[in-house]
Computed example of a mutant assay.
Amino acid sequence: MAADLIHDAARMGMKVCTAKITDTRSGPDVGKMIDADAHEILDFTNERYASTFGLNLQQLLDITHNLIARMAAKETDLLILEDCR
């Protein structure tokens, strides 16, 4: 799970930026990322989607691309993407 990676990297002093790119809701996973001490947290709701259920491949790729671009613009040591699988 992303939260474990975030926690370990944060303990090593790294600034971790993470994004949840797919799911039917974002709350619980984002909460775990906060608890793991992520520096910056984004998810599909930042791209104006309440859920990624039923989206086509191009929409999912657009979400992923946009979230990566946002994270890359931050001062961070590590980028982590998580999906719902």
Rank of each mutant, 00 (worst) to 15 (best):
T64L: 07
L42M: 14
H7L: 10
T52E: 12
E40M: 11
M1L: 12
H65E: 15
E47D: 10
T24Q: 08
E47N: 06
K20I: 02
A19F: 00
A69I: 10
I68R: 09
V30N: 08
I80R: 03
A72D: 15
P28M: 04
M12I: 00
D37R: 14
N46S: 09
I21H: 01
L5C: 08
K15N: 07
C84F: 13
L61H: 10
C17T: 10
C84D: 15
D62P: 04
A2F: 13
L5E: 09
L57N: 12
S51E: 13
L42A: 05
N66D: 15
A36S: 13
A2S: 13
D62C: 03
A50E: 14
H65Q: 08
R85I: 14
A72Q: 05
T64M: 11
G54K: 14
D23R: 08
D77E: 06
F53K: 15
L42V: 07
L79C: 11
H65Y: 12
T18R: 04
P28N: 12
G13A: 06
R48H: 14
L42T: 02
H7K: 11
I41D: 10
T18F: 11
N56I: 04
I34R: 01
R48F: 12
H65G: 01
L78I: 13
D77W: 06
A2I: 07
K15A: 02
D29M: 03
D77N: 13
